[in-house]
């Protein structure tokens, strides 16, 4: 067992390594951590770089992959890339599910036979409220896409992001759960999490403050380096946040992973890493 595999087994750091494939997105949500939008700096990590790091991660003892952005499926090579990742380790891809036209759906069909899940954002059971934060027509596109994915046997999870989950209306939450169940998504594949007060959520005065003590250490690779968590490589006012940067070095991956373990070793006893992205 490598030292890193031991750190993962001891739950010092998460077993999943995350890839920020890109930072641009067809949407522009009000709480977006990365200030993503169609014309922002793309900060694309690149297909080959992701595959190389993924192979290193697997050899080091990581147990899963995550892909996020921006919107990963805005990139043409994403269906193939996710399939390659899924053939190596269980993989989760975070998506807004608004780009699944017939061609894309055909391209992602091979994912049905792999341990791959697409985690889709759906925040509210009513279109008007949902679209307030995520943009016009978002609700319609998402509830149209999910059954098409489920039909094809592709693993789907739903992520609901709420400004304050504790203050959420239970009746609304129940309607949301009825909606996802009606689309074939069981309760265990529905996560509810708070808006994190980083990125665009800061400008819009939303969400909960999350320092590194509240976040699970999960190695997260971007075009700008290795970060502490998928909630870490955020952008505010066009500038990348560096407070949760681990290192600029991402290759060899063992160096970045070793630095993350060192940081995790120094976490105060009893810290409450209660916020995960999935």
């Amino acid at each position: 067992m490598t030292a890193l595999a031991e750190a993962i087994a001891a739950e010092k750091i998460g077993g999943r390594v995350w890839f920020y494939s890109n930072y641009h997105c067809n949407l522009q949500c009000s709480y977006c951590l990365t200030e993503s939008a169609p014309l922002v700096k793309r900060r694309e990590l690149g297909r080959e770089a992701i595959l190389e790091r993924a192979r290193e991660a697997s050899a080091l003892g990581f147990t899963g992959y995550g892909v996020t952005g921006g919107e990963p499926f805005i990139l043409d090579y994403m269906p193939d890339l996710v399939a390659e990742l899924g053939r190596e380790l269980p993989t989760i891809v975070l998506s807004n599910a608004t780009l699944f036209n017939e061609r894309r759906l055909r391209e992602i069909e091979p994912l049905a036979d792999l341990p791959v899940h697409i985690q889709i954002s759906l925040d509210h059971p009513d279109p008007v409220e949902n679209d307030e934060m995520r943009g016009p027509e978002n609700f319609r596109k998402v509830v149209e896409a999910i059954p098409k994915l489920v039909e094809r046997g592709i693993g789907v999870r739903i992520a609901t992001t709420l400004d304050d989950p504790d203050a959420a209306d239970p009746e609304e939450q129940e309607r949301l759960c009825e909606l996802h169940r009606s689309m074939g998504i069981p309760d265990e594949d529905h996560v509810v999490r708070p808006v994190i007060n980083r990125g665009r959520a800061v400008s819009n005065e939303m969400g909960v403050l999350a320092g590194f003590e509240q976040l699970e250490p999960e190695l997260t690779l971007t075009a700008d380096g290795a970060f502490y968590s998928p909630f870490a490589p955020t952008v505010r006012g066009g500038r990348l946040d560096t407070d949760l940067l681990v290192s600029r070095t991402t290759s060899p991956l063992s160096a970045a992973a070793g630095s993350l373990v060192r940081i995790a070793d120094d976490l105060p006893a009893g810290h409450d890493a209660s916020i995960g992205i999935r």
């Binding site: 590194f212 502490y228 946040d241 560096t242 407070d243 949760l244 940067l245 681990v246 290192s247 630095s259 060192r262 940081i263």
Partner: peptide, 9 residues
Amino acid sequence: LGREQAPLL
């Protein structure tokens, strides 16, 4: 990088 943006290490 000011204190608020100082990376962990």
